[in-house]
Amino acid sequence: MSVRIGRSVVGSEYPVYVIGEIGLNHNGDVEIAKRLIDVAVEAGAQAVKFQKRTPEIATPEHMRDVPRETPWGTMSYLDYRRRVEFGEPEYLEIATYALRAGIDWFASPWDVPSVEFLEGLDVVAHKVASASVTDLELLEAIATTGKPVILSTGMSTLEEIDRAVEVLGTDRLVMLHATSSYPMPPEEANLRTIGTLRSRYLGVPIGYSGHERGLQISLAAVTLGAVAVERHITLDRAMWGSDQAASLEPTGFEHLVRDIRVIGEAMGDGVKRVFPGEEAPRAKLRRVPAL
C-alpha cells in the first residue's frame, strides 16, 4: 500500500520520503525557520515538519511552573512554551515560504485546538508525535480530518500502537519506528522493529524517525526497508534548545539525503541478471562458457 502526502507518494515502490524535522529548532524565530526550510530544500527532502501546541493544554501540569533557563532569561516552563510557539501570522508566512520553495510542510499537533488550527492552514498531513500515541482524544480529532497521518511509535508498546491504529485506521497511515532517546545511543535503535511493524500492520508503509547522532543508523533503516526517514535539522548543533544536539546540520542532512538516494538506486528489484557493465568482463575473464 502507498499513501499520497502532498506532492509525494510514500511506499516501497517510490523514493524514500525524507522529512526535515524543524520542530522547535527555530527557537521562536521565523527567519530561522525559513533558513531551515532552505536547508531541507537544498538537501532534496520532500517535506519539513513543525510542532504545534496550545501551551496551556499541551504543557503537563507538573511541568508548568518548573523554572527554565532560556536565552531570554529564567522563566517558567509554560512561559517558555509560549515564547517559542508560532501563531497564525508566523505559520502563514511559513506556509507561503514553503509553497514558493516547492516543499510540503505539516506539523505535529499536541492537542485538539492545534488540529483545528492546522486544518485552517490546510496542511497536507498530520504527524502524531510519539508522546501522543496514547492521547485518544487527539487521535480521534486527527482521524476526523481525513488527512494522511504519520504515526511515530517511540516510547510505546505494541498494545498502545494497536489502540492508536484502531482510532486512526490504516487507509492513509504511515508508521515510523522510533526510539525517543535524545540523542539516541546505537544500542537503543532496535532497527529490526521495522520488520516487526511491517509484519504486524500489513499494508501500512513503515519508515524511521531517528534521534541519533550521525547518519549510519538512518541509512541502515533504509536498507531494512524504511520507506520514509525523518531527522531533526538545525543550523548549528551548538544552538540553544533541547533537540539541537540530536539534529543534523545542513551538510550532514545533505549527505543523508544523498546517501538515501544512492541506496535507493542500489537496492534493485531482486532479480538476478547479467548487467550490461558485466558483459565485457564476462567475455574477457570466463574461460569456460556456460552450457
Rank of each mutant, 00 (worst) to 15 (best):
S209N: 07
L173Y: 03
T179W: 07
V229K: 02
R198Q: 13
I194H: 05
T153P: 08
E212A: 12
E212V: 14
S209V: 02
P148T: 09
H177D: 12
L176F: 09
L219Q: 09
E212I: 04
P185R: 13
R258T: 15
L215D: 07
A220K: 08
H232W: 00
M175S: 01
I150D: 04
A189L: 03
A164T: 00
G252R: 03
W240E: 08
L197K: 05
T144H: 12
E187P: 00
A226S: 10
L191F: 10
P183K: 00
G154P: 03
T144F: 13
M155W: 12
R200H: 09
H177T: 08
F253C: 13
R198K: 15
P148V: 02
T153I: 13
R237F: 00
A220P: 03
S242Q: 14
V149P: 01
R172I: 06
S156V: 08
T179M: 06
I142T: 08
H211P: 01
L215V: 04
Y208N: 06
T223N: 10
S242G: 12
I217V: 10
V149C: 11
E188G: 00
L151H: 06
I194G: 07
L191M: 13
A220Y: 04
A220S: 13
A226L: 12
Y182H: 10
V227W: 06
G154V: 05
D243A: 08
L248I: 12
F253R: 11
S247C: 09
V229F: 01
E249W: 01
R237S: 05
R163W: 10
F253T: 12
V227H: 12
V222F: 06
H232C: 05
E187K: 01
G195W: 05
V257W: 00
L219V: 08
I194C: 01
S218T: 05
A221P: 10
L248H: 07
H211C: 00
P250M: 01
L151Y: 00
L256M: 15
S156R: 03
D236Q: 13
P183W: 09
D259K: 14
R258K: 13
M239E: 11
V227G: 13
V222L: 08
G154A: 06
L235K: 01
M175W: 03
V227K: 11
R213I: 15
R258M: 06
T193S: 04
T193E: 09
A238F: 09
I206H: 06
D162I: 10
